[in-house]
Simulated scan of single mutants.
Amino acid sequence: MPNSEFSGCRWAVVLLVMAAASPSWAAPIEQSDTPLPADCDGLKKLSLPLEDAPPASMASSLKGCSSEDLYFGIGVPKDPVRARQCAYVERQDPDNGWPNLFAGTGMLMTIYANGIGAPRNFDIAMKFACELGGAPAEEEGWLAHLQKLKNENWQGQDFSPCDDITSGAAMGFCEAHGAKLASAARKAKLADITAHWPSAERKAFAALEKAKNTYAAAVADNEVDMSGTARGALSIAAREAEDEQFLATLEKVISGNLPSVSPPDLAETDNKLNALYSKIQKKKDTSDWGTVTKAGIKKTERTWLIYRDAFVSFAKRNFPSVAPESLKRVLTEDRIKSLENFGN
């Protein structure tokens, strides 16, 4: 089975109307021993386990909760039971968006399929699949997938709604979820790296991160074609790529694992970037760029220069043994790669 912690794909978020789902509270049921027809007309008639919903007395403590964070342990300790309670609360919130696979109804489908946070119940998981209001092919995929797991008496715990998606809306939620997991992992790694740094070094690092964030946001905003249905996911992916590259470069700086570079080597790389940038700015036909413009690339280039200089200043202060030429060349080569498609 694919890992539930979602392998990132380049998908998009599109604005759609959320399918309303009215709660059905009745007596708790046992999962059927005989296969139910995997159709929503029958599944929607199933009553939900009354004891699984949080009591009214918990409402205030669950206000503003995130079942996604609680289930996956994003920024908080994993708490599957509270994630399930939170998801029932989120299920009543019309602001969760359509079809939010990682809040409310979507998380409840995952919780009951995996048996984490509530007893495994494929029938109830299929009921929630019907309530999600996904694209027809997605709904069919979820139902077929869950029915197959039920028939096989599957005991795994890595079912993911992202395994069976087809629409831009659902793909966007999956991309955002993958980015959220990756961001949490990076933050944890950076916290470990900087934990024992003196306050002055942490302050210098904060300034570097600010410059990096400005540059990464500029890439996502200005160097991604926003004309297609993949726009949202591509923007997320672009920023994720810059964040991952930043961490990788930082680790090389800390370990001293940067290539030895002479001033002529750096000059050669700088000239390559300048030539590429000049070619881009002189290009007459940019129709294949979609919404990307020369002005947007120019704006992003300025933020990159600030980011590059901030990284070099940080390394010079905190890791004086690192040759500035080596770091500049690595950063410049990365920028060249990000611009190459526009120069073709």
Rank of each mutant, 00 (worst) to 15 (best):
T293E: 10
K294I: 13
L273E: 09
A267H: 08
W289E: 04
K272V: 09
Y277V: 13
N274V: 09
I280H: 03
D288E: 10
V261W: 01
Y277H: 13
K283R: 15
D265S: 09
Y277D: 06
Y277A: 09
E268C: 01
P259H: 09
D288T: 10
N274P: 00
S287I: 00
W289K: 10
T286L: 03
G290L: 08
K294L: 02
T286N: 04
K284L: 08
K282I: 00
A275V: 03
L273H: 05
E268Q: 15
W289D: 05
D288I: 03
A267M: 07
S287Y: 01
K279Y: 01
Y277N: 08
I280D: 03
T269E: 14
K282M: 12
D285R: 10
S287D: 07
S262D: 02
Q281A: 10
S278P: 00
K279H: 12
D270W: 02
K294G: 12
T269D: 10
N274R: 13
K283E: 08
V292D: 02
Y277G: 00
A275R: 13
N271Y: 06
N274F: 09
D285G: 01
S260D: 07
Y277C: 00
K294H: 11
V261P: 01
D270T: 13
W289A: 07
K284T: 14
L276A: 04
T286D: 07
P259R: 02
V261A: 08
S287A: 12
E268S: 15
S278C: 00
K284I: 11
L276W: 01
T293K: 11
S287L: 07
V292A: 03
D265M: 03
S260F: 02
V292C: 02
K283Q: 14
T293R: 08
T291G: 10
K279F: 04
T269S: 14
G290I: 09
T293N: 06
T293W: 06
